[in-house]
Amino acid sequence: MAQGSSDDVIVVGGGVIGLTTAVVLAESGRRVRVWTRDPVQRTTSAVAGALWWPYHIEPVASARAWALRSLDVYEELAERPAETGVRLVDGVLGETTLDAVAGWASTRLPGLRAATADEYAGTGVWARLPLIDMAAHLPWLRARLLRAGGSVEERTVSGLGRVRAPVVVNCTGLGAHELVPDPSVRPVRGQLVVVENPGIRTWLVSTGPAGEMAYVFPQPDRLLLGGTAEDDVWSTRPDPVVAEAIVRRCSALRPEIAGARVLGHRVGLRPARPTVRLERETLPDGRVLVHHYGHGGAGVTVAWGCAQEAAALATAS
C-alpha cells in the first residue's frame, strides 16, 4: 500500500480511545482512517459501565489531568444527552471522603458533599458526574468522525509494521499485549448484569469489607449492575455464579433491585498496564508511531484529555 499524503493517519483500534483520538485528529484537518478488528458495538468499550471517575489507571497525576480535560467535554456533550449518550447524574461514591478528592476534583465539582445516612450507610461522597451510555456514545463518536471526513474499516492487523501510513496511532488496548508485543498489558475482567430499571435514578459505587465491588448505573432504558475486577483473567464468558453474586450485592444496597428482570449479561476485559503508554517513536523508515494504550478501567474517563495529547504527539513536526 502506498504511504499516502503527509496528512494520512491510521488509528488502529476502534474503542473509545481509538475513536476519540481519531475525532480529534480529523477535526484538526488530518485525513484519518480507523482500522478496527471489531465493530464498535463489540469492542471492550461497549461493555463499560462508563461513569466518569479515574479508576484502575496510572500514573495518578496524569490520569486526573486527562480526566478533568475530558470532564470539560462531557459537560458540554451532556447538553445533548439523547444525541451523545452523555448525562450528568447524581450518585454516591462509597468508601470515599471529601478529603480524598479535595486536592484535584472539588473545584470542578461544586456540588460535591458528604453523603447523608439516608443516601448511603457508610462513608461516601455525593457527586454529580457524567454517566455515559456507551450504546449511544460509541455510534455517536463514529458518526462525528465520519462527518469530519474520517473513515472506519473493519480489518485485523497482524503487526504494526504492516500498517503503511505516515502516522500510525496504536490504540489497540489489550491487543497491544501481542501486537507490540507488550507483556505488561494484562486483562482485568469485569462482569455486569443488565436488568430492568425499577425506578432508580441515582448511581452508586460501593466496595465491601473484603474488597468486593458493587455498582448501580441507571441508563435511559435499563440498569447496569456490577461488578468484578479479576486480574489476569482472559475469559469473556459470563459466569452465572458471579452474576448471582452481583445481583445479590446490588440488591443489598438498593432493595428494589431484587426481582428485577434480567435483560442480559456482559463481560469486558479492561486493558490494564502499570502506567498508560502514551509516547511517540520514529520508525527506521521515518514514519511516526504513537502508542496510546493501557488505560485500565478509565478509558472513557480520560478519553478526550488523552486523545488531545496523543494527537499532539502524532502531528508534532
Results as ranks from 00 to 15, higher is better:
101 V>P: 07
298 A>Y: 02
210 A>C: 00
193 V>E: 01
66 W>L: 09
147 R>G: 06
188 V>W: 10
250 C>I: 02
88 L>N: 06
162 R>Y: 05
30 R>V: 08
69 R>T: 09
274 P>N: 13
273 R>Y: 10
140 W>T: 10
111 G>R: 15
110 P>F: 02
100 A>C: 01
39 P>L: 11
257 I>M: 06
258 A>H: 07
61 A>C: 02
236 T>H: 03
284 P>H: 01
264 G>A: 04
281 E>C: 08
277 R>C: 11
175 G>A: 10
34 V>N: 03
222 R>V: 08
69 R>K: 15
229 A>G: 07
223 L>S: 03
115 A>E: 06
15 G>T: 11
164 R>T: 13
295 H>M: 00
83 E>D: 13
282 T>C: 00
311 A>K: 09
127 A>M: 14
191 Q>M: 07
233 V>L: 14
226 G>K: 03
192 L>N: 06
2 A>W: 11
55 Y>E: 14
247 V>Y: 00
274 P>S: 10
100 A>H: 04
201 R>K: 14
313 L>S: 12
21 T>I: 07
21 T>D: 04
208 G>T: 00
219 Q>S: 11
277 R>G: 09
307 A>S: 13
267 V>M: 00
269 L>C: 03
44 T>V: 14
64 R>N: 12
127 A>F: 02
110 P>A: 12
56 H>L: 15
114 A>F: 00
129 L>P: 04
317 S>P: 14
113 R>G: 13
191 Q>H: 07
290 V>N: 14
309 E>K: 06
143 A>H: 12
310 A>N: 08
19 L>R: 06
47 V>T: 13
10 I>W: 07
38 D>C: 05
192 L>C: 13
48 A>L: 08
22 A>E: 05
254 R>G: 01
10 I>E: 07
181 P>S: 03
223 L>D: 03
177 H>T: 11
125 V>D: 09
155 R>V: 14
181 P>N: 05
293 Y>M: 05
149 G>P: 09
18 G>I: 02
242 V>S: 12
184 S>R: 14
155 R>C: 12
237 R>C: 06
161 G>Q: 10
275 T>A: 14
287 R>K: 03
136 A>G: 02
213 M>V: 13
73 V>A: 14
171 C>M: 03
212 E>Q: 15
39 P>M: 12
123 T>P: 05
140 W>I: 11
168 V>C: 07
165 A>Y: 09
23 V>L: 12
267 V>H: 06
38 D>V: 04
144 R>C: 04
302 V>H: 06
141 L>M: 14
104 W>E: 01
97 T>E: 09
86 V>N: 02
127 A>P: 00
217 F>N: 00
291 H>R: 01
77 L>E: 15
129 L>S: 02
295 H>A: 01
293 Y>P: 04
167 V>D: 04
292 H>R: 00
127 A>G: 04
317 S>Y: 05
168 V>K: 08
132 I>P: 01
273 R>T: 05
316 A>P: 01
283 L>M: 15
277 R>A: 09
317 S>C: 04
152 V>M: 09
187 P>A: 01
104 W>K: 00
78 A>V: 07
6 S>H: 15
